[in-house]
Amino acid sequence: MTEILFYSLSIIAIATSLLMIFHKNAMYSVLFLLACFFSIAGLFVMLNAQFLAVVHIIVYAGAIMVLFLYVIMFLNMSTPITIRKSKLVMFAAVLTGLMMAFLLVVSVWQTQAFGQHPEIVDQNIGLAKTLGKVLFNEYLIPFELTSILFISSMVGVVIFNKKEVEDE
């Protein structure tokens, strides 16, 4: 049962993310990405990480993708377009993408839980309590620093927008 669920969710995740990349219509791309997020949330639930699953849905599906859709609707980007960039830029993009993927694969490979049956993994690992304790004890400083980074970027966006209005 667990294995069937795991494989079907993974296949959906991979298929939808590929469709997201290859679909010409930006609207469908967003919806495929959404489906991908849901299957990943399903994988989180299988690891008993309900908190992570729900937050994943709230943040990505509920907030970020809504903004994506919003922009696509506003700019009317749903008509199929071909993106033309110079060969050099495309090459650099592919290279950095591959490097990033390599890094991620290697770092995931080295974790202890890799390749283990989901039922063997610590059942408390993704609960709000466990996560909160880890974040606010062991990783307090990195966590706070990320928050400051977020706030400064948000303030930055507001300031940039204000300036444009004053210039006009």
């Binding site: 609207m27 729900v54 709230i58 509920g62 907030a63 809504v66 859709l69 609960l127 709000a128």
Partner: peptide
């Protein structure tokens, strides 16, 4: 055990029906 967040999550998804239908 994350019931409140579940509700917030589903509520935030409610907008998709309207957006997709409207578009």
């Amino acid at each position: 055990n994350v019931g409140v967040l579940y509700v917030m999550g589903v509520v935030s998804l409610g907008v998709y029906g309207i957006m997709i239908g409207g578009w």
